[in-house]
């Protein structure tokens, strides 16, 4: 990673964190649906980047969101999990050879992109809402929250891909 690359990653880290706690935490579509867009950072982290650093940054990102929404450590736990498991999602969506190809997520074929984003978002949200409810008897609520928020977050992330990748074409 070059110097500029490193700086833009750092910039994106703080940008998604601020966006999440200042704006997106207050959307409440239909009263309760919130997008958790901040994992955009984890999704877009360079595929060849340092894995240990990604795990650490995912944790800090989730921790930051937790701090401002009084949720204990649920965002930190869900974020560090997908940060650690990201190679599995990549392998699942782009095939085993993703490491050797120079794939860029925002310009990959739509189908692979969708599988990658939706699977990461769904896993993150399921873990998040399960930990938040902290009791399995709320399973119906957990599932419906996960599905509705996942849809919202995925749409935002796919939208952000197209918004920011038009310049490169």
């Amino acid at each position: 990673m070059g110097q500029t690359n490193w700086l833009s990653e750092l910039g994106r880290f703080f940008l998604v964190l601020l966006l999440q706690v200042l704006l997106l935490n207050h959307i409440r579509l239909f009263g309760y649906i919130n997008p958790y867009f901040y994992i955009y950072f984890i999704i877009l982290y360079p595929l060849t980047g340092n894995r240990t650093l990604l795990i650490l940054l995912s944790f800090l990102l989730g921790f930051g969101v937790d701090l401002f929404s009084d949720t204990g450590g649920v965002h930190a736990a869900a974020a560090v999990f997908i940060g650690w498991a990201r190679p599995l999602f990549l392998k699942f969506s782009f095939g085993v050879s993703y490491q050797y190809n120079t794939i860029k997520v925002p310009s990959a074929p739509l189908q692979q992109q969708l599988i990658y984003v939706v699977s990461i978002v769904f896993t993150h949200h399921l873990l998040l809402f399960s930990l938040e409810a902290f009791a399995s008897r709320h399973w119906a609520l957990i599932l419906s929250n996960t599905l509705s928020s996942s849809l919202f977050t995925s749409v935002l992330i796919m939208g952000a891909f197209y918004l920011f990748s038009t310049k490169n074409k």
Partner: peptide, 17 residues
């Protein structure tokens, strides 16, 4: 590293509850 951070996060969740 993942396991350590995950446990820290769970611990924070538990104490917040």
């Amino acid at each position: 590293l993942f396991a350590l951070l995950f446990v820290i996060a769970l611990q924070r969740t538990r104490s917040a509850h």
